[in-house]
Design a protein around this nucleic acid. Structure first.
Lengths: 201, 201
DNA sequence: AAAAGATTTAACCATTTGGTTAAACTAACG
DNA sequence: CGTTAGTTTAACCAAATGGTTAAATCTTTT
């Protein structure tokens, strides 16, 4: 197994990820992935026994790559407002570089919620720390009272939703691709401003 | 064709809508719809020639039922802040009663953007009126400057996203179904407050 | 370079799936 | 009552799809 540039397994994973995240599990054909990777269909089954196994590898990887980064920002020991700015900037940057993953993850989980168990649950998203930080700031009279659930929902919504609704937004707002990128770039500042403004006294 | 309670065509449409919105086009089998409707598979093809035709009927109906209602609120002649409250309340209420449609619509459009053409384009979402209203209020010095694109994105994001992320939110926040409903109910007030707060001088 | 092991392919297989057909059933109508 | 038109079904079909197999090729080891 000489390390040329990208060994076959990595090549398959890259292709599978592209096709799965774009078309979803049900919309993906093994042949699509083989074509994308420029290899034979049987080779997919040689490296990953089944479509399910291959999907599992992709899905787990996507979840494990992105979730921890974000949770880490929110649970780090830093100023709340600064955390919010960091989180929005990081989340939006990640999604800008991987526009399909948001829609992919939420769709797959909706269609097959039991996939939550082995993946997200395993990561152990620690909302307690965020809740404590929020409640602490509230008790200290530095921010307005707000439930952690809404705080997270608001922040994540405004970061993620534009990517899920990308084609619709572009259509309705008559944006082309550069315009959308510009729009997204602006939100890195705008979103934290709104969230901070919503809890600032 | 005696009007018993629900004629076969309506029965099929109802079943197809349920299955399509929950599993997506690619995840739906004609047999699933037949089972859901309690009829023979061939009967589906008797009423709607193909899976595509049946899907088209559902998709168009979903789009036509919900979009206009919302655009109407935003383009109506009313106080801006009141419009925002009305919009959030109406949008969230609709989604609470039809939890699957948001994820359904955005996923199908992402996977097959060309479906935009015949449907959303046909409705003609009029962003000009909203833009004019916003710009007018800004010029009059009654609200902070904000781009229409962000205003809409923010408002819609916070209304819609929780439904798309429902299983993930419920998992992470350890909510059961009543808790989620309560959470959603609270957002009918919270979302407009945040949006209004973000543009209030 | 020959044997052994890993990798890749073409051809094939079984099942699923969208769709068709011809027959059976039902309701209206002369 | 029987004919006709609309409705529903069971049985069937062809294409697509996930998966297998056995042979071919390439790598490594001796």
């Amino acid at each position: 197994m000489s390390e040329n540039e990208l060994n076959t397994e990595q090549l398959i994973l890259k292709a599978a990820r592209k096709v799965f995240t774009h078309k979803g599990f049900d919309g993906t054909r093994m042949q699509d992935i083989a074509d994308e990777a420029g290899i034979n269909k049987a080779l997919l089954h040689y490296y990953f026994r089944s479509k399910d196994k291959l999907f599992e590898a992709i899905f787990t990887d996507v979840i494990r790559t992105f979730f921890p980064q974000l949770v880490q920002v929110l649970t780090a020991d830093a100023d709340l407002f600064e955390k919010i700015r960091l989180f929005a900037d990081k989340y939006i940057s990640i999604l800008a570089a991987n526009p399909d993953i948001a829609g992919f993850v939420f769709h797959e989980i909706s269609v097959n919620p039991h996939r939550l168990v082995g993946n997200i649950r395993g990561i152990g998203v620690n909302t307690d720390i965020i809740k404590k930080h929020l409640d602490h700031e509230i008790a200290a009279g530095r921010i307005k009272p707000i439930k952690m659930e809404h705080f997270i929902a608001n922040l994540v919504s405004m970061c993620v939703f534009p990517f899920i609704a990308k084609p619709v937004l572009m259509g309705i707002m008559q944006m082309d691709n550069p315009a959308f990128e510009q729009f997204i770039e602006e939100r890195k500042q705008l979103v934290p401003e709104i969230i901070i403004n919503s809890i600032r006294l």
